[in-house]
Design a protein around this nucleic acid. Sequence first.
DNA 1: ATGCGTTAGTAACGCGCGTTACCTACTTGG
DNA 2: CCAAGTAGGTAACGCGCGTTACTAACGCAT
Lengths: 356, 356
Amino acid sequence: MAKITTPNHAGAARQRGVTMNDVAKHAGVSRTAVSFVLSNRENASISEETRARINEAVQVLGYRPNAGARALASQRSDWYGIVTEIVTAPFAVDIIKGAQDQAWLDRRFLLIAPSDQADAVGPNQGMEDAAIEKLLEQRVEGLLYAATYHRGVHVPESAYEVPTVLINCFDADGRLPSIVPDERAGGRVAVERLLQAGHRRIGVINLDPDIPAAVGRLAGAREALADAGLELDPELVVAGHATADGGYEAACEILDRYTEKDRPTALFCLNDRMAMGAYDAIKERGLTIPGDIAVIGFDNQELIAAYLRPKLTTVALPFEKMGALGVQTLAALTAGQPIIADQQLVGCPLLERSSV
Amino acid sequence: MAKITTPNHAGAARQRGVTMNDVAKHAGVSRTAVSFVLSNRENASISEETRARINEAVQVLGYRPNAGARALASQRSDWYGIVTEIVTAPFAVDIIKGAQDQAWLDRRFLLIAPSDQADAVGPNQGMEDAAIEKLLEQRVEGLLYAATYHRGVHVPESAYEVPTVLINCFDADGRLPSIVPDERAGGRVAVERLLQAGHRRIGVINLDPDIPAAVGRLAGAREALADAGLELDPELVVAGHATADGGYEAACEILDRYTEKDRPTALFCLNDRMAMGAYDAIKERGLTIPGDIAVIGFDNQELIAAYLRPKLTTVALPFEKMGALGVQTLAALTAGQPIIADQQLVGCPLLERSSV
DNA sequence: ATGCGTTAGTAACGCGCGTTACCTACTTGG
DNA sequence: CCAAGTAGGTAACGCGCGTTACTAACGCAT
């Protein structure tokens, strides 16, 4: 199977690559003329004829502009940098996807640099600073800073040297603009959906109560209940580890505590992994979903939500949208808009599947 | 909450950034001297004293080299490009992670460009070519081409202009080197594990039989059985959709076809999503895992395998390793090694959890 | 013939840096 | 005292391109 194909490119004297000068010579004009045509300047006067000659030369020679040289001369790189732990903990990849797509639309390039969690210790400590430093050496025009889960962060000082936007996290120092999910509205829509299905007694499987996600989602749930003239029974809120096991245990606790009559008819799980565990607890007891107990999740982790049986109705985190919005915001900033250090909230849409 | 912080950076006349010249002046030497010190050349003779002065100037002025200019002058960018549909279909993100980490170690930068599936039609057709074109404009020294699932691909012509390595796919034209998972060995290790646990009658939930993953894994399974003097009963191989539902249906078919005595005591599911469905089918019939029926999966999709109950024993696809190996291979190529168009196989380790 | 506006282009500088060739002291051995 | 190093630098070119002068030719009304 192993066969040698070509002599290596690098082995040969690095092919010098055709430059604008070559194109100019081939077309019998000056390099300036070529430059004008390629960047089709408004007020440049080049006859249709020579313009055509130049374009043909470009075609024939296979000329490819040198982005680096262009950046050097024009003093703008068309690059944004994104530094994120998502590369190392790929939970919210869709942020990158959204940012990529938007950047691509804007004809910009996204340089992705890895960072470990801000609170990491050990050999990778300081990796984040190094990453930002590297990006600045590439002369990125702006920075995106994205986290895997919604939280407050401290951004390295050097990030303040260029316009910076935070995604899925916010500046604990309150100096930078950020894009975050609207957890409260999400929690609200989830519970509203349950209410609409007729449920009145709703159990909540909570996360670590301190993180923004838990705070917001729970607040939203309370609001929805209040609108219906109900209150959240504190006894029905059980916190657990943010895993399937945690969800299983919390669900067991709730389910076993009551008789069939008092038992909640629906569970709002604050993330999908916990919902996964809750499924097991419910099925184990011979109950059906959503017949006996409805379940609604949060996060829309595709691999879980779309493959559970029955498929899980859940609230989606708008990762892709946040990524795109981050790039748009950054574009506005680099275009000269004043920096407003607020949090843009992005809605969390309800995804109907089959568990309610 | 909304408060205006600083006047925008871009609004002010773009801060010119301190250059090597500034450093030189500050230290009272020539720019050449600074350059020599910063790239600490061997045979340059700079006294310790001036060297110190220069370093201090760098520190004081906060000098940051301009990567673009450096690339232009030195004719090497230290950049690799990776073009992949992973950005749009994030299943195998770990490839990027592995590549990133390795690139970071080698002090290289990874430019990530999105591509849609090669066989995509519609508005994004040709996006892949555009992505490669963009990367070449950045003067990347080599290309990585990564796919989300193991298959043969046709690489755009322009990719042949620089050293290119395929990851998790192989060149259907047989001209480029590639890194792929060793599916056969993986299938083998899975079945060996079941045999070792005493199972003799093993059901297989198969994928679309045409894709390399199915072919390889099944071949490996046969080998393992042959080593034990057994044969794979064709009746026990059921193909299904590569989803949880597909796995559920296939599992039902197998389980319901036999009496308790003839029924297989173990299921080899060719991917974890199908194993997820199989779990449901098994539990639904009042059977336990692994007590009544052992299950082993393939792919190690963390979100599924680690959160199923019981946690799924499975064979992992070595995404991260393949990414790293891709970069290493590329480094060798750009360093001048001849290009060998073979497929490097990377082992698929067994991950013991609790389902066998 | 003169002046002026337009069209069609070019020469030349600078972006920030790597690199080669050269230059000036200051030793050191004979 | 002289030739031959050697330590410690520097001047200047080029990388590929954007951009700002500036020129040269031409048409046209005065």
